[in-house]
């Protein structure tokens, strides 16, 4: 079955709403309008208002309502349009969702799923294009996942829904058009393990989200220079599956981290630090890092492209690491 990323998200959402009686979707324009990115198009008509609810334009209010619903026994799926707007709900996410299990001595779990789009590449400028999942990955109490493939876009929600703790799913807006052939039956995705998307022997590229695609494009070209790159899709940014990339680095002895977040204090910094701590004696070169330029994402197309990591940048960075 040929699906694009958007249809896969919709398929996963529909599957969850139908098969989990306690699940419902709420957010801005998810019902009558069909979702800002048309992910929930048709679901209100098919499943009714008990399953799909439009909310007022108040991220803090509807995320807070979702937290309350989760504590009360439901399995809410809350959609926030973009990660930039999620900052209006940061208090609810950080101070309530992430902490209540801890602060109630284990009495109140918050089995909440929050979906939001992240990422640049569509000329939506500095208030709609950032990649802040690294911020959220800093917070204990949350699970942070980022589907980079069509299969993960469809399957991650079901696994997330089974998690007793809050899970934030970061759907990359520039990936909505990618397509893949999937089986008819939805396959749940293992959120505990990173995925080796391409095996290789000379360098380990650790990435996620849009970075996976830039890295895979680069890995296609690199054999022409005699370099075999292993590409690892983190999938879950918290908790990190360090076993997978450390095992890989122990074989390749070189590592490059590619991310769309900013360089300073990002996920790549964490991964690189872990490699430095755990795999130091396996390293034959300094760990390389590629990230978005440290600017608000520009509007102009050529400037936006220049700010983001491109496949050519990955090729050049691999070259620099392998030497």
């Amino acid at each position: 079955m040929k699906l694009d990323y958007r249809a896969a998200l919709r398929d996963g959402l529909r599957h969850a709403l139908i098969n989990e009686p306690r699940a419902f979707l709420m957010g801005e324009d998810v019902g009558a309008y069909g979702g800002c990115f048309a992910v929930s198009l048709g679901l209100l008509e098919e499943l009714g208002e008990n399953k799909v609810r439009d909310t007022p334009l108040s991220e803090s209010a509807f995320v807070g309502a979702g937290i309350g619903a989760a504590m009360g026994g439901l399995r809410p799926i809350v959609e926030i349009m973009t990660v930039n707007f999620s900052l209006l709900a940061l208090d609810q996410i950080m101070n309530n969702a992430a902490t209540l299990l801890h602060m109630s001595g284990g009495q109140f779990a918050v089995p909440l799923v929050i979906r939001m789009t992240t990422g640049a590449g569509r000329q939506l400028a500095a208030q709609h294009s950032h990649s802040l999942e690294g911020w959220y990955a800093h917070i204990p109490g949350l699970r942070i996942v980022a589907p980079a493939t069509v299969a993960d876009a469809r399957g991650m929600l079901w696994t997330a829904l089974a998690d007793p703790d809050p899970v934030l799913i970061f759907e990359h807006a520039a990936l909505f058009g990618i397509t893949d052939d999937l089986p008819e039956e939805l396959e749940p995705v293992d959120l505990d393990r990173a995925a080796v998307r391409r095996p290789g022997t000379d360098i380990t590229i650790v990435t996620y989200g849009s970075g996976l695609h830039r890295s895979l494009e680069a890995a296609e070209v690199l054999p022409g220079e005699g370099i075999s790159a292993e590409v690892i899709d983190l999938r879950t940014l918290r908790p990190l599956d360090s076993d997978t990339y450390l095992e890989s680095v122990a074989r390749t002895h070189r590592a490059l981290v590619v991310e769309e977040g900013w360089r300073t204090g990002g996920i790549g910094a964490e991964v690189a630090a872990q490699i430095g701590e755990e795999a130091f004696w396996d390293l034959d070169a300094p760990v390389g890092r590629l990230a978005t330029a440290e600017v608000p994402i520009p509007y102009a197309q050529h400037l936006e492209a220049a700010a983001l990591v491109q496949a050519d940048d990955v090729v050049a960075a691999v070259r620099a690491v392998v030497g």
Binding site: F280, D282, L283
Partner: peptide
């Protein structure tokens, strides 16, 4: 710029 001559990578040392 600070690389001293005579350096070796950790893996090479191991």
């Amino acid at each position: 710029a600070t690389l001293r001559s005579g350096a070796a990578s950790p893996y090479a040392r191991r």
